[in-house]
Amino acid sequence: MTSTTFSLFLAEIVHNSIVVIDASIDISQYMPIDLSEANDDLKQFDMSSAIAWHDYITSTLGFHNKQVAYGGYLEQRGMYSRSAYFNTRHPENERNIHLGIDLWIAAGTPVLAAFNGEIHSFKDNTNYGDYGPTIILKHTIKTVTFYTLYGHLSRGSLLSLKVGDIIRQGEMIAILGDAKVNGEYAPHLHFQVIRDLQGNSGDYPGVTCINDLEFYKNNCPDPNIILGLDK
């Protein structure tokens, strides 16, 4: 299945927009946010500080009277420069292009399964700037197998999980973690759709470099195909 065919498949199986955080929040309470290097507002605070990020996200939501800020697919971001985990000596190999969608909202917010499926794997990814606690679900729909990844969760969310557990669409699978456990970010969900996990377990790259962009863009289509946040 080509990347274009997979994207079309996703669009075909979604009859209504999929909700992956607190279903009681109306879509009218979502707003897009630009966290790319082009946003000059990000130069006004210390991007290495989770507290500063939290203040920026919170004040932006408050100004617009919204509850959730979203965005980031294929966004080139400066925030990853704070962590050696994403960087090399060669700019073309610096991982700073985001492969999922982030949903910025308070710690403790429920996280919901995008589709029927099962627990594929889970892990606490503890590198500085990494996902922190992460769950990957496996889905098989109309004979097509694919995966969804949920990152920046609470540690408690992983405690009762078992690989192979059946999960229903819309079921609460976790809650969001805070900066102490989520890789030192303001609280948010990183949500990513993955065609081929390439043998990974509990983890999969959520940020890539320009040299590898075409592969990951094909393997990880825009989650908004199923979330429908730009409609």
Rank of each mutant, 00 (worst) to 15 (best):
F146E: 05
I33F: 10
L153T: 05
F115V: 05
L42F: 13
T208Y: 03
V111E: 02
T2V: 07
E184T: 07
Q67S: 14
M31F: 11
T148H: 05
S83W: 14
T5I: 11
S36H: 11
L10N: 06
S121V: 10
L42R: 13
D41S: 14
R89Y: 07
L158C: 11
Y147M: 06
E92Q: 12
S3E: 10
K217R: 15
S59E: 12
D124E: 11
G129H: 10
P205F: 13
W104F: 14
S59R: 11
G108H: 11
T126V: 14
I51K: 14
G151E: 01
G71D: 10
F146C: 07
V181Q: 02
G164T: 09
N224C: 09
P205K: 13
H54M: 11
V163M: 14
F45Q: 09
E37N: 08
Y128Q: 14
S28F: 07
G177F: 04
G183K: 00
Q169M: 11
Y216N: 08
M1R: 06
Y70W: 15
S7M: 04
V68R: 00
S48P: 01
D55T: 13
T126M: 11
D178E: 09
S49H: 09
T4P: 02
E118H: 12
F6E: 02
Y56E: 07
K43E: 10
I13M: 04
H190A: 04
G62H: 14
T143G: 00
L158W: 05
D41I: 08
I141C: 06
D40C: 04
I194R: 02
N96H: 12
L103S: 02
T58P: 00
R77I: 06
G100R: 08
I21E: 00
N93T: 13
G170V: 04
D196H: 11
E171F: 02
K142G: 04
N218L: 07
S49W: 11
V68E: 01
F115P: 02
T143M: 06
N182I: 03
D222L: 09
L35V: 06
S59L: 09
I166T: 13
T109Q: 06
H64M: 09
S154D: 10
Y80I: 08
K162W: 01
E12Y: 03
P187Q: 10
S81R: 13
R155H: 13
Q169A: 15
I141G: 05
I18E: 00
E214S: 14
P223S: 10
W104M: 14
R168S: 15
H152T: 06
E94D: 15
G164K: 08
D26N: 14
G164E: 07
E118G: 10
T4N: 09
V163Y: 05
G132D: 03
T60M: 03
V14L: 04
G62F: 02
Y131R: 06
A50W: 09
C209G: 06
V14R: 07
K138C: 05
A113V: 13
I57S: 02
A23C: 02
V207Y: 00
Q192P: 01
I13K: 01
L227F: 03
A23Q: 10
L153K: 05
Y216G: 00
Y56R: 07
F191N: 05
L137A: 08
K66Y: 03
T148A: 08
R95C: 07
